[in-house]
């Protein structure tokens, strides 16, 4: 009997302790969460403004020059808060059919199976998942770049340009510049290696407008 009562007392005390602990934990979590939600509310979702954004690439031609290509059709969005850059996110999709190198014959050729293979893989995508600030004006975005069905990790060197109000339409705008270089052979594009460069430099200018 004594033993049973002891067990009963212990159970009641344990239950009380557990209940207090749970209440304290919930309270602490709620307190901790309040400023977090307040700051998250300040973080905005921005749509990439294609009119004031651009994606260009540079690739060596026989060592004589760098052929310049541009992506004419792309879209995407990002979440950004200057106070918490590490919590940003980014998604961009480029339409392969809209890639131009200022020559219609070549533009048509690079859509083919040897190159971007637009029939099977009509989009190039980049999903940023790790953001690191180097200083107040620069940082890196690491993410997954998918070209022609092959996904590889890529790190962009990013310069934060400006955040503020567009004086024309009063929209909230944030602007970045980014650069990186990739090897096309990593994405299975090995046609004419040695004559047309393997390394491709990418230059990106992004202006994002906050969703209202």
């Amino acid at each position: 009997m004594t033993g049973q009562r002891t067990v009963g007392i212990i159970n009641r005390e344990e239950t009380k302790t557990m209940s207090n602990l749970l209440r304290t934990t919930l309270l602490a979590a709620a307190i901790a969460w309040l400023p977090l939600t307040a700051e998250r509310a300040a973080a905005g979702t921005f749509d990439i403004d294609p009119v004031h954004s651009g994606i260009a690439f540079f690739i060596d031609h026989l060592g004589f020059s760098q052929v310049i290509g541009i992506a004419k059709e792309f879209s995407g969005s990002f979440q950004f808060d200057a106070a918490r850059p590490a919590e940003s996110s980014l998604e961009v999709a480029v339409k392969v059919a809209g890639i131009s190198t200022n020559n219609s014959q070549r533009d048509s050729d690079i859509q083919g199976a040897d190159w971007f293979n637009a029939t099977e893989f009509p989009q190039i995508t980049f999903v940023g998942h790790e953001f690191k600030a180097v200083d107040a004006k620069s940082g890196t975005i690491s993410g997954d770049l998918t070209i022609a069905g092959v996904t590889k990790p890529v790190t962009l060197d990013v310069t934060f340009n400006k955040e503020g109000q567009n004086p024309w339409d009063k929209s909230h705008v944030v602007g970045f510049s980014a650069r990186t270089s990739i090897k096309r052979s990593d994405f299975g594009m090995k046609a004419a290696l040695g004559m047309i460069g393997d390394e491709v430099s990418l230059v990106v200018q992004v202006e994002g407008r906050a969703r209202s």
């Binding site: 199976a113 040897d114 293979n117 099977e120 022609a148 069905g149 092959v150 052979s185 299975g188 090995k190």
Partner: peptide, 13 residues
């Protein structure tokens, strides 16, 4: 093509 493609293959080539 300078490669032996990985399996499963990605793309027609």
């Amino acid at each position: 093509y300078n490669k032996v493609p990985s399996f499963p293959p990605v793309g027609a080539v």
